[in-house]
Simulated assay, not measured.
Amino acid sequence: MATHSFMATLDDLNIVKVSGEQRVDYLNGQLTVSTKKFDGGSARLTAHCDFKGKMFAAIIISQCNDAFFLSMHKDSAIISQEQLKKYGVFSKVDIQINEELHCIGIAGDENIKHLRVLFPALSSTHMSTTNNEFGQAICFSDASLRYLCYLSDKGKQRLLDISDADAFVPCERWNMLEIEAGIANIQAATMSQFVPQMLNFQSIHAIDFDKGCYMGQEVVARTKFLGKNKRATFLLSGTLESELSINAGDNIELQIGESWRRGGVIVRAVSRPNAVDESGNSKTVKLLAVMPNDTDPNAVVRLKDSDVRLSVTPLPYELTR
């Protein structure tokens, strides 16, 4: 398991809070996992889709007191909230973007020790949740041990005081670990383009195929049982020798003989300066891209119309159908 150390402000995330007496049944008809069987002590990855099975959002869902928290990329939160509210008028639910909690990412033994002061009952079980008056901490222990935290103003300041830190680092450090874990998200440029299986959601326990109906369920089920999915998400890595903007929605190319052909679409990317490069000019880039699911692990890949070569890196989980 990779080791990293940071405390990051995840300002690219929003939390949609769903409360009300019919919240369980309502969300069960909207998301790819069952909220009726939901364990209050754990979180899950899930998808929110349109009626064609294409994703509005990749979500981390958890419970806190009498509400569900749905954290997702801020681009998705705007649309997902609108869609949930659209159908929520027929149920006793309240759906709002939560402005009271701060999304913070924590990694590294020393920082986790500080977090444990804030949450004495902190669990190290994958996808477990710990709640108290400071907020909620969700554990990820897949490719790396890290915690996604939703902290109140008091909890955020308390964590800074405990750690004797001046400030939190930007979200790129957290996003690098998420990419290494093979967890894709949905941003504005990739909205309503992919069914969940194209983002490997069947392989990270983010789809319950035995649950009842939900928005897009027929397409998601058909994709599995008829073997119609021909694309999957791959982890790619490379080195940048100069500044280059890499964004969700950008294309990548595969080398076929002497020519290059469109090979896929980037869904999540981040670059960081290489620690061994004192000049600061060289950066490691890691990204997740949706590509044909029969892509050769030794394929030659590049960013479209660039000299940046990328290599396919093994995912930390097995791709299932």
Rank of each mutant, 00 (worst) to 15 (best):
L177E: 13
L177W: 01
L177M: 01
L177Y: 00
I179E: 05
I179A: 04
E180D: 07
A181V: 06
G182C: 12
G182Q: 05
G182M: 08
I183M: 04
I183P: 01
I183R: 02
I183E: 05
A184F: 10
A184S: 14
A184I: 13
A184L: 03
N185P: 02
N185T: 15
I186D: 04
Q187H: 07
Q187R: 11
Q187E: 12
A188F: 15
A188Q: 10
A188V: 09
A188M: 12
A189Y: 03
T190G: 00
M191E: 04
M191H: 11
M191G: 02
S192I: 12
S192V: 13
S192Q: 15
Q193A: 12
F194M: 10
V195L: 07
P196L: 00
P196T: 01
P196W: 02
Q197C: 04
Q197G: 09
Q197M: 09
Q197V: 03
Q197H: 14
Q197K: 12
M198T: 13
M198N: 06
N200R: 11
N200G: 04
F201E: 09
F201I: 10
Q202C: 00
Q202K: 12
Q202H: 08
Q202V: 00
S203T: 05
I204T: 11
I204F: 06
I204Q: 03
H205S: 15
A206L: 03
A206S: 15
I207V: 14
I207N: 11
D208Q: 00
D208W: 00
F209R: 13
F209S: 01
F209N: 11
D210I: 00
K211C: 01
K211F: 04
K211L: 08
K211W: 10
G212S: 02
G212Y: 07
Y214W: 08
Y214R: 07
M215C: 11
M215Y: 04
M215R: 05
G216C: 08
G216H: 00
Q217M: 13
E218Y: 08
V219G: 08
V220K: 13
V220N: 14
A221R: 06
R222T: 07
R222S: 09
T223M: 14
T223P: 01
K224S: 06
K224F: 03
F225Y: 15
F225N: 09
L226E: 06
L226T: 03
G227S: 03
G227C: 02
K228P: 05
N229D: 02
K230V: 12
A232K: 15
A232H: 09
T233C: 14
T233N: 09
T233M: 11
T233F: 10
F234A: 15
L235F: 02
L235W: 00
L235H: 06
L236G: 06
L236V: 10
S237V: 01
G238P: 08
T239A: 15
T239E: 07
T239N: 08
L240Y: 01
L240H: 06
L240M: 09
L240Q: 00
L240W: 02
E241M: 14
